[in-house]
Amino acid sequence: MSGSAVPAWFNRLPAYSRRPGTRLVIVDNQVLSYRLLDGHRDADYDVLFGDPRVVLQIGRMVIKETLRSVGIEDTGMEQDRRGRPVRVGPVIHRPGLPIALHRRMWEEQARLQDQGKLVLVGGFATEQQRILHDRFTALIDAGCNRNMGPKDAHVVAEALVRRIPLFCRDDRARRSFAAGVERGGALAAELHAANLAGFAATMFLP
């Protein structure tokens, strides 16, 4: 890819130490779905998914969102002492993708992993990182109103704690996070205490 085609945000990506010559970016569920399921194309998406120097990273929340199929989490039934089924609660459905889309998402993510374009990271390097992630998740969820739900809060908190930019085109979530920080309070205080206020201000891409 020629230098003239590289977007400005490319130079903001940190180097990926495990693969010299590459850079790392976190992406959310929407980005993966738009490209892998809908085939969305534009200049930014073509760099994300086509430039071998860019490695995509997803964490536990996005892994769950994109690699789980629709199903039943709990039937709400148990057996009584005689082995007869008895309803003890409602049927709880597991969120996820319909079977056909689920299969395609699995196949496309596997292809990206084979190409060295995608890494799945389920945990944190230290207990301190995990604790900080959980703390930020709760603060973001509480302080950024309804346009920043719990799942979004998990993804944003992960990008913060790992100090890796997040490619996200969900404008409502981005505005909600910015508003939550600007209001001050516990979220802004925690960002300053963790020395993350500066990174938070430039974390979102593009």
Rank of each mutant, 00 (worst) to 15 (best):
D134E: 14
A173R: 01
R82P: 03
E78N: 12
R81F: 12
E78R: 15
A142V: 00
S17V: 13
Q115D: 04
E108R: 08
I99M: 11
A8S: 14
F49Y: 03
D74V: 03
D44S: 04
I99F: 15
V119M: 07
L132W: 15
V119F: 09
D152W: 02
G59P: 01
I164T: 13
H40N: 06
G185Y: 14
G143S: 06
A157K: 03
D46E: 12
Q79Y: 15
F204Y: 05
A189N: 09
A186D: 10
A43G: 10
R81S: 15
V88H: 08
V91P: 10
T126I: 07
V62R: 02
H93M: 12
R103F: 05
S2D: 15
L32E: 04
R23I: 02
S33Q: 13
D141R: 09
A186R: 12
A5Q: 11
I58A: 03
F199T: 05
V156T: 01
P14T: 04
L139P: 00
S176Y: 07
L187P: 02
R60A: 14
T75G: 04
L13H: 02
H154W: 10
A157F: 02
L187S: 05
P85D: 13
P90C: 05
L97S: 00
D51H: 06
H40A: 10
R130Y: 09
E190M: 09
D171W: 09
G39L: 01
L132C: 11
E78Q: 14
R174K: 13
I131M: 13
V88G: 12
L160V: 07
P85W: 05
F10D: 03
V62C: 04
R135Y: 11
R18Y: 05
C144R: 01
F177I: 03
F167V: 05
L56I: 11
W9M: 11
A15F: 14
P206Y: 06
K151W: 03
A142F: 02
L205F: 08
R19F: 00
H93C: 10
P7Q: 07
A8P: 08
R172C: 07
S176Q: 11
Q115V: 01
S176A: 15
K151S: 12
R162K: 15
G76A: 10
P90E: 14
Y34Q: 13
V156W: 00
V54A: 08
D42Q: 10
R162V: 07
V119H: 07
P150E: 09
L112T: 01
S17M: 12
G50I: 08
F199E: 02
R60V: 06
L132N: 09
N145D: 14
R130V: 07
D38S: 07
K151I: 04
L112M: 00
M105F: 05
G96A: 13
H133N: 10
I131F: 11
Q115H: 04
H102R: 07
N29M: 10
G122C: 04
P98V: 06
G123A: 11
R81G: 09
N195P: 03
I99R: 14
D51I: 06
P165N: 06
M77Y: 15
D28V: 06
V6T: 12
D80E: 06
A110D: 14
A193W: 01
V181P: 04
R35I: 01
P165V: 05
A189L: 11
P7F: 05
S4I: 13
P52V: 06
R175F: 07
R130Q: 15
R103Q: 13
D46W: 03
I58M: 09
R183M: 13
